[in-house]
């Protein structure tokens, strides 16, 4: 019986975390990004144990994400929350959900195309323009407005756009 209650609680926490967004890419939830690695409810101490992993080591959004998680869980009645940050295994864009990739695309950011991190030769990748869909695009800069993005331009519609790098 108790085990079921814990499972239900954990399930509801995963659902709550779906509503916590990345402050820099607000269409993506932290679940879409794959940065929540584990959720555990300790019934005895009535504590929620969360494990999250940063996308990039210097990502300034991590502190804010932590605060937003606490806020969202407090609203649902979970006041005792321990958030542990782990570095290993290192976050990879392979953990991004399919729906996350579709949301990125709709938001105007080309989602990561390859699953192999070794494909860092960005100019060799075929990236479709999120505005017009053309694959006639070129790399402008390997680094974009945030650490996780590169800057591309569409040679058909001429729009510049961000590409979420494989990592």
């Amino acid at each position: 019986m108790e085990a079921t209650i814990v499972k239900d609680k954990e399930k509801s926490i995963w659902n709550i975390l779906e509503t916590v967004c990345d402050p820099e890419i607000p269409v993506l939830s932290i679940i879409d990004l794959g940065i929540v690695r584990a959720v555990q409810v300790n019934e005895i101490s009535d504590t929620v144990e969360l494990t999250i992993t940063p996308t990039y080591t210097g990502c300034p959004a991590m502190d804010m994400i932590g605060a937003q998680i606490r806020l969202a869980l407090a609203e649902a009645g979970y006041h005792q929350v321990n958030i542990q940050q782990v570095l290993s295994p290192a976050w990879t864009t392979d953990w991004m959900s399919e729906s996350g990739k579709q949301k990125l695309q709709a938001y105007g950011i080309a989602p990561p195309v390859a699953t192999n991190f070794n494909q860092v030769y960005l100019e060799d990748l075929e990236i479709a323009c999120p505005n017009c869909g053309a694959t006639n695009t070129k790399l402008v800069s390997e680094f974009g407005s945030t650490a996780c993005k590169a800057l591309f331009q569409c040679k058909d519609c001429l729009e510049p756009f961000d590409y979420f790098k494989c990592h």
Binding site: P54, Y56, T57, V86, L87, S88, P89, A90, W91, F117, A147, H167
Partner: peptide
């Protein structure tokens, strides 16, 4: 090791 795993990607 975890820091190395993470840093080398960047």
């Amino acid at each position: 090791k975890a820091i190395a795993d993470k840093s080398i990607k960047e």
